[in-house]
Amino acid sequence: MAMHQTQKESKICNTLSQLGSLKSYARNGNLDIREYLKIYLGADKKAALKDAAPKYIEEHYPKAYKQAYSLPEGYILNNREFNTQKKSSDIHLPQESVSMVFNALKDAFRHVPSLTIFEYAFTDTLLKGIDKKKRKEFIDNLKVPVEALESGDHDVFGIGIFGKDIVGIFFQIKATTSKSNQKTFLKRLEEATKQIKKDLTVFCTMCGEFLNGNVKLAGFAAFPMLSKSDLKKLMKSKDCTERILTSDDLRNEKSFQSFFNENKIELKEFDNPEPLVMQSFKDIFDLYICAASAVNIPRNPTDSPRRGELNA
């Protein structure tokens, strides 16, 4: 049994190594999803995304492409609140686990034109209104992978302009605690790697029109309720543990930045991007923002009663 787990661990680690390497990806299929989506304007009014996007962005995101935004806007749950709940209860807190990563990534992207999103469900956004007939058409005629049209979500995803590149980082989060055994942990880790693969598949399908060599992506598994020492007890591979985000990496901004440095991801601040880079970022930003127009979430700081400071 132990040998089986070791082989399984080795396979997962190889996958994590590939997913965590920042690189460009090829387009999946020939779909331009913007042609099939609507923008929801309220009062049962909606308009074609391609027609209404500029006005929608101007109204709700007046500083788009110049500063950082998030969906939802504002921090979800501050660290003090999370730590208080963690000490007072042994119950798994999956949403709060996701919140910790969202807050940290949003903070890391705050100095550049960017978008950080939290639990972005595909059926409510990129696939909203796409029926079975359309899905079959996409698969048969546009060579869209089946998995890109299935339900799921980006747990946490951030994309921004860093230097000459557009950098997109995916995190799939598990609320596993130190009480879990190795078998359970590896199962959750394997689930996370599969979800990261889907994140990339969905992005490269839905944003295929905007991909170029400057759009670079990476994905990581996150276990905010485990420490590095917990991880070492559950895994034999030291290289693999560097690919997994833990509570130690979320202690402060410096430790979070160190996680990226260990994975050879340098987040340089905004520096006059080339027109092609800016246009690609605009297209990606507009699609993700507009596709979520029907979702009831805070779109500015005053909308969120739970807004708090990351290190309060």
Rank of each mutant, 00 (worst) to 15 (best):
S151C: 02
P94E: 15
S99L: 09
Q172K: 12
S89Y: 04
L93H: 08
A175Q: 07
E191A: 12
T123W: 10
N103Y: 04
R135H: 06
D140K: 14
H154A: 12
L189C: 08
K106F: 08
I173R: 03
L149Y: 07
K194N: 13
I173F: 06
G152I: 03
F118L: 06
F122V: 06
V101G: 03
G160F: 01
A148R: 03
K198M: 01
I130D: 09
S151Q: 10
S180P: 02
P145I: 05
D140E: 15
N141Y: 13
K194M: 11
S99V: 08
K134Q: 14
V101L: 06
K133I: 13
I169V: 13
P94W: 08
K198Y: 00
D155M: 09
P145K: 04
F138T: 05
S180G: 01
S97F: 03
A108P: 08
P145F: 07
I166Q: 02
Q195V: 07
R110D: 13
V98D: 12
S88H: 13
F162G: 03
I159G: 15
D107H: 15
Q95W: 12
E96Y: 10
V202K: 00
N141M: 11
S114G: 02
F122T: 06
V156A: 02
Q182Y: 06
H92Y: 12
I91K: 13
V144H: 04
I173W: 03
I196Y: 02
A192R: 00
K194S: 14
F138L: 08
E119G: 12
K183M: 12
F138G: 08
K128I: 12
K132M: 10
I91L: 13
F138N: 00
I166M: 04
L105N: 00
Q182W: 02
T184E: 13
F162C: 10
S114C: 04
F102A: 00
E190D: 15
S88Q: 14
V101P: 03
D155R: 09
L105G: 04
E137H: 11
P145Q: 03
I161F: 06
S99N: 14
